[in-house]
């Protein structure tokens, strides 16, 4: 059975083979201004960055940032729900203009899309119960680790975990968390925000941070070669940084400061 991830990689490689990024030659910003609408892919199943309220309307930090970009560009915002599996294809096929979706920057992705400056903090780590002894990655040997398929933690874990680690992949963050909370696995590799909610719902569980996988702030994703649009977005982010908007958003949704956001 093809995993979502292998489909993405296949399509990504196919996209590399077709020189489409250059061929589109910088029309995205013009298209957005002409249509007076910017289409932005956002998560809807990943609190507190993107989730839904009782009326199923998207809300969260990423949605607020998307709204900010739209306002500063002077256009309407059309929010398109995306998931890890399809967000990059959405961008590559120009079905969205930007993705604001807890997107981490790495070399593999940088080959097929462009990134803006960072707009919010984020880190992924390895967590376990207080009673579980984990001081280094070598301690993961032989332990069961829950992780969400295709997420950043999944890729990072593959690089640093010893071969005898038993990795159990689940389809989304909720399932991964449920597995760890119910004791199906001893360890969980996930984002800090996830653990925050987990601890809130299961105060007696006693979850503790053990190891850092990656300090991976969030960047806005832009289609390759669209420098005009990227320039605009970067300007908006820098301005928001300077006037404290990004700090406010971080406090509101993540209950912590934005910290030092890289460019």
């Amino acid at each position: 059975m093809l995993s979502k991830r292998s489909v993405i990689v296949a399509l990504g490689l196919a996209a590399l083979a077709i020189p489409f990024g250059g061929a589109h030659a910088q029309t995205a910003l013009d298209d957005v201004l002409k249509a007076k609408t910017v289409r932005i892919g956002v998560p809807t199943d990943y609190p507190p960055y993107g989730f839904v309220g009782p009326d199923l309307k998207p809300m969260g930090l990423d949605i607020d940032v998307a709204g900010l970009i739209g306002t500063r560009l002077g256009v309407k915002v059309e929010l398109v729900p995306v998931v890890s599996a399809n967000r990059i294809p959405y961008l590559q096929t120009r079905k969205v203009d930007l993705i604001v979706s807890t997107l981490g920057r790495n070399e593999e992705r940088a080959k097929i899309i462009d990134f803006s400056h960072a707009y919010a903090p984020f880190y992924q780590g390895v967590f376990a119960l207080k009673t579980t002894e984990i001081k280094t990655f070598a301690d993961l040997a032989g332990k069961t680790v829950a992780v969400a398929r295709g997420a950043m933690e999944d890729e990072m874990l593959a690089q640093v975990a010893p071969p005898t680690t038993i990795v159990k992949r689940f389809e989304d963050q909720a399932a991964t968390t449920a597995a760890f909370a119910s004791g199906q696995t001893q360890v969980i590799a996930t984002s800090v925000s996830n653990i925050g909610v987990l601890s809130q719902k299961n105060p007696g569980l006693g979850v503790e941070y053990k190891l850092l996988l990656r300090d991976s702030p969030c960047f806005v994703g832009i289609a390759k070669g669209e420098d005009a649009l990227r320039g605009k977005v970067n300007a908006i982010i820098l301005a928001a940084k300077a006037d404290g908007t990004l700090e406010k958003l971080s406090q509101k949704w993540l209950k912590r400061g934005a910290g030092d956001l890289p460019l």
């Binding site: 809807t44 199943d45 990943y46 609190p47 989730f51 839904v52 199923l56 909720a174 449920a178």
Partner: peptide
């Protein structure tokens, strides 16, 4: 829809 709601309520 189930996925979105489960992920925000943490009640899968």
């Amino acid at each position: 829809a189930g996925g979105m709601i489960a992920n925000v309520t943490y009640e899968p």
